[in-house]
Simulated scan of single mutants.
Amino acid sequence: MTSVTIVTGGGRGIGAATARRLAAAGHDVVVGYRNDQAAAEAVVADVRAAGHRGVAVPADTADPDQVQRLFDAAADLGPLTGLVNNAGITSPIGPFADLRVDDLRRVVDVNLVGYVLCAQQAARRMTRGGAIVNVSSAAATLGSPGEYVHYAAVKAATDTLTVGLAKELAPHGIRVNAVAPGIIRTDIHALSGAPDRPDTAAGRIPLGRAGEPDEVAGAIAFLLGPDASYTTGAVLRIAGGL
């Protein structure tokens, strides 16, 4: 059976690396993106170069109508077998007391509500079984004091979502797992106002360096693949020892 997998936030960082890795592993890939069409189309070009079908679909995952359109586009390729819930944002790094309500609401909407909406669509459509991987964060257990406690709290909710869905969807042949990356070299740090964070934080990472998107993508591909057929409800930490 052909693997058809949606990767949200698939135009950059971990999402882009995952889409490319999945294509190499035999998946047709739907790349969800919010703003950067050119980046998403570049990923799709790589998917097709690997010999598989790819399509880029604009979607704000916090909007249920746009999420439905994303999943409808995937249905055009065949029955859905995989979902990588990766689209996410942070807000400016800073003290918890300075957190603005609009930043809080956007972080919750994208990183939690968006994951729920996408997982809900996947649960409805994976009629032949499948696998979901939620991209969480090591922040869920570290708390991210002085940086973004609210983001860490939302990622802790992602871990709980993963465990609960794994138990509920197991009878339907749907596995649900998560990866919890630490500090990975992506542009999310620039968006939070600390573009050099992967380098400045290296001293407190036991392995002595930030991670690379491909190092997370490999774990996601494993959790979606046949070698993880008895793995569900797991949160795989990829954080260099943090």
Results as ranks from 00 to 15, higher is better:
1 M>H: 10
151 Y>P: 00
41 E>A: 13
98 D>L: 10
159 D>R: 09
169 L>H: 01
52 H>D: 00
205 I>C: 01
197 R>Y: 15
237 R>G: 12
82 G>S: 05
182 G>A: 02
229 S>D: 14
104 L>H: 15
74 A>Q: 01
97 A>T: 13
130 G>R: 06
134 N>T: 07
97 A>M: 10
233 G>Y: 07
181 P>F: 11
50 A>M: 05
63 D>E: 11
125 R>V: 12
59 A>L: 09
174 I>K: 03
123 A>K: 06
8 T>D: 03
186 T>G: 04
66 Q>E: 13
217 A>V: 11
181 P>S: 04
81 T>S: 12
209 R>V: 08
154 V>Q: 00
164 G>L: 15
38 A>N: 02
173 G>Y: 09
120 Q>G: 04
220 I>G: 00
240 G>F: 10
77 L>R: 06
16 A>P: 01
228 A>D: 05
197 R>Q: 14
172 H>N: 11
149 V>G: 00
193 G>D: 11
158 T>N: 03
180 A>N: 06
107 V>G: 00
52 H>S: 02
220 I>M: 05
111 N>S: 05
75 A>L: 11
47 V>W: 01
228 A>M: 10
89 I>E: 01
180 A>W: 11
146 G>N: 04
205 I>D: 00
74 A>F: 06
31 V>I: 15
4 V>T: 15
38 A>R: 11
61 T>L: 15
190 A>W: 14
53 R>F: 10
35 N>Q: 15
46 D>V: 12
